[in-house]
Design a protein around this nucleic acid. Sequence first.
DNA 1: GAGATTAACTTGGTCGGCCAAGGAATGCGC
DNA 2: GCGCATTCCTTGGCCGACCAAGTTAATCTC
Lengths: 180, 180
Amino acid sequence: MKAETGTAGAAQADPACSERLPLAAQDGPVSMTISRVARLHRIAAGKVLKGLGLYPGQEFVMMHLWDAGPVRQSDLIKAVDLDPSTVTKMLQRLEQAGHVRRRPDPDDRRAVLVEATDASCGLLTEVRRSWGDLEDHTLAGLDPAERAELARLLGRVETNLCVETADCPEEAARRAALRR
Amino acid sequence: MKAETGTAGAAQADPACSERLPLAAQDGPVSMTISRVARLHRIAAGKVLKGLGLYPGQEFVMMHLWDAGPVRQSDLIKAVDLDPSTVTKMLQRLEQAGHVRRRPDPDDRRAVLVEATDASCGLLTEVRRSWGDLEDHTLAGLDPAERAELARLLGRVETNLCVETADCPEEAARRAALRR
DNA sequence: GAGATTAACTTGGTCGGCCAAGGAATGCGC
DNA sequence: GCGCATTCCTTGGCCGACCAAGTTAATCTC
């Protein structure tokens, strides 16, 4: 889509056939692949979600709302583990799009209760199907054993990345473990 | 960092102990993990890069510039495979930050030549080191065989995702194959 | 060589993300 | 009860990323 006819001149000259990896990235080939896969995966998800009226990232919020019903916004924020401001703005857009309803919490005048609209619940099935299609496409050509192994390894990577990300290793490890 | 003391109320009530995965995502567990790993990995990369004066995403542009020297912007765009407008704005910021120099191409008055500044070249080593650290951290606890397997599987996933992303499957497959 | 096409950016808009800072309500200590 | 810290959410700013549209220059066509 970006790289078209590929007569692109000399920049991509593969000298010999040695290293396709940038010099500065040679100590991190897997990290490089993760980055690329991440982007491709997000694009693929976004493409399929666009047809449903969702932007990439919103899926996770909606998924939690479908599961949990009316939730305090702060709980939602903890569930999806995003910055509060990110969630606020996303919810404003989701509300305007009619996917979400918000109302003040009668028990706590600071808090806001969020829930998926009835209309949006129709999306659940389609999102689930799309998500399944994405999975199929992502894992095409991998047999069950390979899929399991990939899941295992990615799980381990997730745990690894969690520990450093969080300021409190213990807590991060606990959370990472929970997801497994 | 976000999920703190975790007394978070009833929202995350693990009913029984069955599914930690949202209902709508149950057909795509690996996709879910990929999304989480992607975000964590980007955050980890961003954290380490911030100390070097780079924002996440800029690394890839700089890496290519360090390798390729002065390049036409259009070639750079093809190399990193991003939207032209994304690269334009990123370069404006990189230029203002002193990491990059831009000048018109004498041979083509439409085009712009981009190169890393001498100052930025000092970053190469540090970025490489950081990238290596990130790799170590990401793959901690995996033995060489597991790392190789993960790389192989991710490569396959990348190929899979490439085909659908591009409008021309042939071209995408070719490009995907090139990266392996 | 004039006219249409294509290539190479740029600008403006929108979203997802983050950080920093602020305002409002609650809860705690005393 | 009063004050101070916490919690909850919002706003503004910034950056990466996309799309759509527009501008300028090269190129192709006749």
